[in-house]
Design a protein around this nucleic acid. Sequence first.
DNA 1: GGAATGCTCGCAAACGTTTGCGATATCAAT
DNA 2: ATTGATATCGCAAACGTTTGCGAGCATTCC
Lengths: 342, 342
Amino acid sequence: MKNVTIKDIAKVAGISYATVSRALSGSSEIGEETRERVLRICREMGYTTNYVARSMVMRRTKIIGLIVANIDNPFMSELAYHIEIRAREQGYNLMLCNSSHDLELERQVFSLLVGRQVDGIILVPANSESYENLKPYISKVPTVFMSENLRDLPESYISVDNYRGTRMGTEYLYALGHREILYFGRRKNSVTHQLRAEGYVDACREFSMEPSFCNSGFSSSSIQTGCQLARHLFQKPLRQTAIFAATDSLALGVMEAAEEVGIRIPEDLSLLGFDNIMYSDLPKINLTTIEQPKKTMASMAVDVLLEKIGDASAGYSHRILTPSLIERGTCRRVGLQAKPNE
Amino acid sequence: MKNVTIKDIAKVAGISYATVSRALSGSSEIGEETRERVLRICREMGYTTNYVARSMVMRRTKIIGLIVANIDNPFMSELAYHIEIRAREQGYNLMLCNSSHDLELERQVFSLLVGRQVDGIILVPANSESYENLKPYISKVPTVFMSENLRDLPESYISVDNYRGTRMGTEYLYALGHREILYFGRRKNSVTHQLRAEGYVDACREFSMEPSFCNSGFSSSSIQTGCQLARHLFQKPLRQTAIFAATDSLALGVMEAAEEVGIRIPEDLSLLGFDNIMYSDLPKINLTTIEQPKKTMASMAVDVLLEKIGDASAGYSHRILTPSLIERGTCRRVGLQAKPNE
DNA sequence: GGAATGCTCGCAAACGTTTGCGATATCAAT
DNA sequence: ATTGATATCGCAAACGTTTGCGAGCATTCC
């Protein structure tokens, strides 16, 4: 039942176990015939290298930790998929943890991962306080932040240009004729949301529209929270002709609430999302949205992380990817109704 | 930069490092005052136990491996979420791998995980050949199979009663007045699909309906494959009044294709799914479906696994959970049209 | 022929823990 | 005072690798 070790191989081969190690590691300090003999014996005896022993002496585990708020969330799981694939390509395995949007838990799993001696950590922060919260631990292991970009963060992060995304989206809605746009679901404790809100506001200013908000007091942006928020919103008639949701999930929640009260999308109300999660593409959903290039972000995150792992003296880098508009069916052109000042 | 070890603590405390270890492990073979002094110093110096060193000597890593086809898939990611939470509660971390529905890759990642010395593996098999494919490796590490239940499998697995699920669903459709039901998207290389198909067939027999199939040649059940299949199906008029999709994802694909050709659901065609993924609950989707108790399955999977890890001599166990019908909006009562034999 | 070089390979330390065993000290009991 | 028991702690081995160093040997060069 005991696994066959390098010493067992050495014994049957009649050589020192150092030589076996060299045969396996592809070292040049070994004769060709002995190498082949060793490899043959390894195959016959079913040897597999013990990574924890190797990690012990090499002082690196070839494991990277991934902390997300919750892996059941189409955005996170898509990211995680591509991260795992990319990491494995580079010889790394993934250790997955859910922070459940809880700062205390996030700290716990983070220090757990450094105890695990992971070579690096990819973190999708719970919220904007994550950095301060993790500061003492972060110096212990290369870390790259994702998605939630913390402004002026002295650590590496990967994200889309959130500001540009909402700006682009707002311009799009303006071009469709909308003059009153509600920004829906802004969270206070998220810099990502902050930036998105700013892009929206600046675009409004540019077109001399009055920005208006429906803020969210929830700690996460799920369909449920979106629905609750929207239900409340729909209790009184809406003067805006379009809703720009901070998140696709929130937009789905808006759809749900709209359905309940009989508001038709896009006939009565245009709806624009952000993220382009997998299900926004469903024809029944067909949500117009701002896309985050998730696969690119994922590969880039592991590449940046590995770079940092390879060169500890390297500084940090911020990679901001450009979002793009995915035009589908939830935004409608509206006639310009006469306004007092026109 | 170097992490503080148990020896560093011993040095400043002026004691042997064995004593430090005992203080940390909560051993009774140590004085109360020294324990407290050691713990204090550990806190001051920021000591964290090195899990790989511990794993080395303890000969267990407290890591469990999770292999799924692809984590971006609402069913898998929901499962993974609850598995990770449950595992961490029990002191285990999760190492995640995607097999991408590929047997060769599945074998690769499996042996990678045993090399990682994981204490056990939870496997959502790529298909029905997975067991044969992994047989030589499986003896090396406690394994529990999930979801894809392999009939007569001499290993532990957790799954719903797929047979009962489709049987229940078919009965439901029959009760709604449907007399011609198409089973959609059966895969050949999946026992889960096999069992679901059997439940459907037996229910048909019971009600003397003629079973009919639209088989899938694809290796996975995604929205895309469902849509392609359904597009082809919808080229000629359908005599059936209801479609029982083998999977919610497939059902979503059917919706997509139906939308394209103008078939209304449920007015023109009733649609029943299986799995109850998160997005089936969206009001725009509102898919009637057979639910798998995913959270229960997840907790049970780690519990069964840990049991097996704790007692190596334990045999295997099969846990079959009962599915339930979630009645939503895609199945419609139909009038019984006069049939020749009535 | 001697030295220098290059190629293989073995020796042993090291990575940071846990733990069985033995040593010492303390204390109560006889 | 001697013994025995008990509590506390140190010593050192062990887990399975990698790797610097040196030994042995053959080859080559002057």
